[in-house]
């Protein structure tokens, strides 16, 4: 097996396919299986030293490395964008160590690694979404003792999470958690969905795609299998709600995507644009326009594309 694979492998010498050795990948896959079997439960795993420091997505990278195959097509986004430094670097990393095809188009990808956003397009059953997670433990700020956290999860004693939401309402009149909004998976475990905006929480519920979460520094993985119930925590009289904007996307006119606020000049004029760059680009390609489409301030540089 190994000899044949190595011959066909014409990537960087000295590295195995996708950087990690096969035993490590097996270990991670075993952990992923455990995670999928117990949705939302944090599985400890032997996180490896990666060629980038903790805090830069090592958990997500290890998960991707363990599941990616030669025929996969990889998309990497960071805050919804394909062309930030990190997204570019990680995409290059896999291109180099696995020689896999990469894309910026959500609909073409089979594996999507993301930092802090879920793509706007609905995902399919043949896609896997890999999240980069900084802090996997939703209870950490309330219960610093790890021993106690484990018991809270094991015995499902989650009232303390409601206390956090109570505090928000008491202090600010409403639940102010805007990202990393805690969710309950499969009516059992409470999970930190990573710092995605709460706008994205509903996308996790009953998704056709497999969702995997990797935290490299904290050495935990967890998963939401396809078609799993995911609820955001709330109170009966303060139900969960998502962000809305008064304006559509300035570039494509979308009214149902997550918008970033962009300051245009020193006078503070601003516009809103889709955070998901691929989603916005495809809408513009279809001819959709927004209020800022013809504004010189928003002239878009057509850069070199890495599309397949």
């Amino acid at each position: 097996m190994s000899a044949r694979k190595r011959e066909a492998w014409d990537g960087e010498t000295g590295y195995n396919f996708a950087y990690l050795d096969e035993q490590t990948k097996r270990m991670i896959r075993r952990c992923i299986l455990k995670a999928v079997a117990v949705p939302g439960y944090q599985v400890p795993f032997g996180s490896r030293e990666m060629p980038l420091p903790y805090g830069w997505g090592t958990g997500g990278i290890q998960v991707t490395a363990s599941i990616i195959g030669r025929d996969d097509i990889l998309k990497v986004i960071d805050q919804g964008s394909d062309d930030t430094t990190n997204a570019v670097s990680i995409r290059a990393f896999f291109a180099k160590t696995a020689n896999v095809a990469t894309t910026e188009e959500t609909s073409k990808a089979s594996v999507i690694q993301t930092r802090h956003r879920i793509p706007e397009q609905k995902l399919r059953a043949d896609q896997i979404l890999v999240y980069q997670v900084p802090n996997p433990e939703p209870l950490r700020f309330l219960e610093p003792r790890e021993t106690e956290c484990r018991k809270v999860h094991a015995y499902s004693e989650y009232g303390v999470m409601q206390v956090k939401l109570y505090e928000d309402i008491a202090r600010f009149g409403r639940i102010t958690t805007a990202y990393a909004y805690p969710v309950r998976v499969n009516d059992r475990y409470i999970m930190d969905p990573s710092p995605i905006p709460k706008f994205d929480n509903p996308k996790m519920d009953n998704s056709s795609a497999l969702q995997l979460f990797g935290a490299g520094r904290e050495k935990r993985l967890y998963a939401i299998p396809p078609y799993t119930k995911v609820d955001s925590l709330d109170f009966e009289d303060h139900p969960f709600d998502i962000e809305t904007w008064d304006e559509p996307c300035g570039l494509c006119g979308a009214t149902d995507s997550f918008l970033d606020e962009i300051i245009l000049d020193d006078q503070g004029s601003r516009m809103f644009a889709c955070s998901d760059s691929n989603f916005c680009g495809e809408r513009r390609a279809e001819g959709h326009t927004g209020p800022m489409t013809n504004d010189p301030a928003t002239r878009i540089e057509e850069g070199a594309s890495k599309n397949v």
Binding site: E157, G159, V160, V163, F235, E236, D237, H238
Partner: peptide, 13 residues
Amino acid sequence: GERLMMVGERHYG
């Protein structure tokens, strides 16, 4: 309120 929330009270009011 914590003990109430621990036994499932979900109405802030």
